[in-house]
Amino acid sequence: MAKPRAFDVTTLPGFTFIAILSFVLLYAPIVTLVVYSFNGGNSVNQWGGFSLEWYVVAFNNAAVQDATMRSLIIALWAAVISTSVATLAALGTTRRGKFKGQTVIYIIINQPLMVPEIVTAVALLIFFSSVKLATGYSGLGYLILAHSAFCIPFAYLPIRARLEGMDTAMETAAADLYATPLQTFRYVTLPLLLPGVIAGAMLAFIISLDNVVITEFVKSAGQDTLPTYMLGQLRRALTPEVNAISTTLLALTIFILIAFALVTKKRN
């Protein structure tokens, strides 16, 4: 039965117009990008017939392959590390009594969402350069650590939401049925939390995958990820190859987001 609505924005003047305008603003650039990825010509704004040639070019470009592999490795590690830390943080902030400084802890955990990214980037650059000097290590570890750090809040939020929505009576019942605290976590909390953990990991993966600013500052020579490689390309000749790479990245992101939605919805 429909509830009578006291206030319904669809009845306001201009509702449809504003809605359509918003969608056009949001999607017109993306649609253009996708359309021109199939351009047969050399231009990103002059149509030269349908072709998949730029996809072929992109997929055969050794630099693109290299950067893609690096992006995936970093995103995978960052997702695993940040999700593990975020799970512990979420347990630590929800599975205990109220404590002093609870709000402060939330702010500290979510710090990467609030501190301007460029500040974090500069800070990491300076910090890691001294570590590099001291240790001599210049591998992917720095990028993985940096990505893990700013991915934590993105992984933390869905996991915490899941834990807060979970009835603690489950854990009480497990304890009542002779489960030790560790067994309770293993057999009750973790299985019930899993959709949240998967959702958090997927979100962290996407966030790491498209990061530019921090990567640009932290990476050593020859450590381009896909986004920083594309940024570099823009400084040279702009061809629909960038469109093709972007469209592929977009498709991957949409795929992960749909999976994310399915995972969070199914178990609820």
Binding site: A174, L177, Y178, P181
Partner: peptide
Amino acid sequence: NARPVNTVFQSYALF
């Protein structure tokens, strides 16, 4: 978990 006592919860609390 160390008490030989079991509870039937109001909300059932089934897993």
